[in-house]
C-alpha cells in the first residue's frame, strides 16, 4: 500500500522547497496553519503576507501583485477561495488573465467534522465558468507537488484544489511519473468501461477496477488532474475503446468533472456516462470514512455505477 499524505501537506512542502528556486510571494487569509502555507512562511517570512480574514481583498491584492510581473500564490479553503471570493477571482484575476496561482485547500467532503459550511463541493464548477482559468485537482502528494511547480512555470491564472485528508501516494510508486499540465494519466485501458477520476477519487477508481476485474469486467482508469483545459483526446479514445464511462469526483455531480466529461463526449463521441460524486447535496459533520460512505464516494459505488454505464450501452 502506498504511503498516505494529504495533498495540502504537499502544497506547503512544495512552496517551501520551490521558494529556493523561484522568487514568488505567498498570501494567505489566516489559515496558514491549515493550508500549510505556514511551511513557506517559516522559511521565507519576508515573502509571506497574511491578509487576515478577508479573502476578497486577498484575491484582488494578488491580482495587483501579478500586474507587476511577479508570481503570487493566494491560499484559503476552497469554500472561501472559489466561493466567497468568486467575483474577485473572476474580475480581478480571470478577466485580465493575471498570473495568480490560487491554492485552495480543504476541498470537498473530506473536510470531515467541520461540516457543510466548509465542505466545498462547488469550486470546480465555479472555476470552470471563468474563461482562461486552468484548474488542477491532484490525486496525491506527488502529483500535488508537481502541480505546484507546473503552475509556477505556466503563465496565467491557475486554481489548484487540495484536500485535508490523507490519500495514498500512488504517483510515488509509478516508475516514470511525469506531470503534464492538461494531459490525463491513463493507468489502464479497459474494453468494457473506463473510470475517469480526479483528486481524492483516483485511488478509489483503482480499487473499483480490481472489484470489477473479479467479476470479469475489464475497466480502464484515467486520472484527470487538469480539469480545465480538459484532455478531450484521452477521453474520446477511452470512449471509443470501452464504449462507456463512469466519472468519479469529490464534488457536486453538477458542474464538475462529470459534467465536463459529459459535455466533451456529447459533442465528440457520445457514449453512456454515469457520474459518481456528491448528488447535489450539502455535506455534514462526521468522520471522513463515514461521510464517504454516506455520499457514495466509494470504490464500491464506482464499480456499481460502472456496471450501470455498461448496461446503458446500445
Amino acid at each position: 500500500m502506498a504511503d498516505k499524505k494529504a495533498t495540502r501537506e504537499s502544497y506547503g512542502a512544495a512552496l517551501a522547497a520551490l521558494g529556493e528556486k523561484y522568487d514568488f510571494l505567498v498570501l494567505d487569509a489566516d489559515l496558514a496553519a491549515a493550508t500549510k502555507t505556514g511551511m513557506f512562511k517559516k522559511k521565507f517570512p519576508e515573502r509571506f503576507f497574511d491578509c487576515g480574514i478577508a479573502e476578497g481583498n486577498m484575491m484582488s491584492v494578488a491580482a495587483g501583485i501579478a500586474t507587476t510581473g511577479k508570481v503570487v500564490f493566494a491560499s484559503s479553503f476552497a469554500m472561501f477561495a472559489a466561493g466567497r471570493a468568486f467575483e474577485q477571482v473572476r474580475n480581478s484575476i480571470g478577466y485580465p488573465h493575471l498570473n495568480v496561482k490560487i491554492g485552495a485547500t480543504h476541498a470537498g467532503i473530506t473536510v470531515g467534522e467541520d461540516g457543510a459550511t466548509h465542505q466545498c463541493n462547488e469550486d470546480i464548477a465555479l472555476m470552470r465558468t471563468i474563461p482562461g482559468m486552468t484548474i488542477i485537482n491532484p490525486a496525491d502528494a506527488t502529483e500535488a507537488y508537481a502541480a505546484v511547480e507546473a503552475a509556477i512555470n505556466f503563465v496565467g491564472p491557475v486554481y489548484m484544489r487540495f484536500g485535508r485528508f490523507a490519500v495514498p501516494d500512488i504517483s510515488a510508486e509509478m516508475p516514470d511519473y511525469k506531470f503534464e499540465l492538461g494531459r490525463g494519466v491513463q493507468y489502464f485501458e479497459g474494453k468494457d468501461v473506463t473510470i475517469v477520476a480526479t483528486g481524492y477519487m483516483v485511488h478509489l477508481a483503482l480499487e473499483a477496477r480490481e472489484m470489477l476485474k473479479a467479476e470479469g469486467i475489464d475497466a480502464g482508469v484515467i486520472n484527470i488532474h487538469t480539469i480545465k483545459p480538459l484532455d478531450t483526446e484521452i477521453l474520446v479514445k477511452a470512449a471509443k475503446t470501452s464504449g462507456a464511462i463512469v466519472t468519479a469526483e469529490e464534488h457536486n455531480v453538477i458542474g464538475g468533472l462529470g459534467a465536463a466529461v459529459c459535455e466533451a463526449l456529447a459533442e465528440s463521441c457520445p457514449v453512456p456516462v454515469v457520474r459518481v460524486g456528491v448528488e447535489d447535496q450539502y455535506g455534514r459533520s462526521g468522520k471522513v470514512p463515514e461521510l464517504l460512505e454516506i455520499y457514495g464516494l466509494t470504490a464500491k459505488n464506482i464499480a456499481e455505477k460502472a456496471k450501470r454505464a455498461i448496461a446503458l450501452k446500445k
Partner: peptide, 15 residues
Amino acid sequence: LGISAACGMALSAKA
C-alpha cells in the same frame, strides 16, 4: 476591487 489591486502593486514594490 481596484483599491485592493493598488495595495497589491504597492506591496510588490515594497517586497
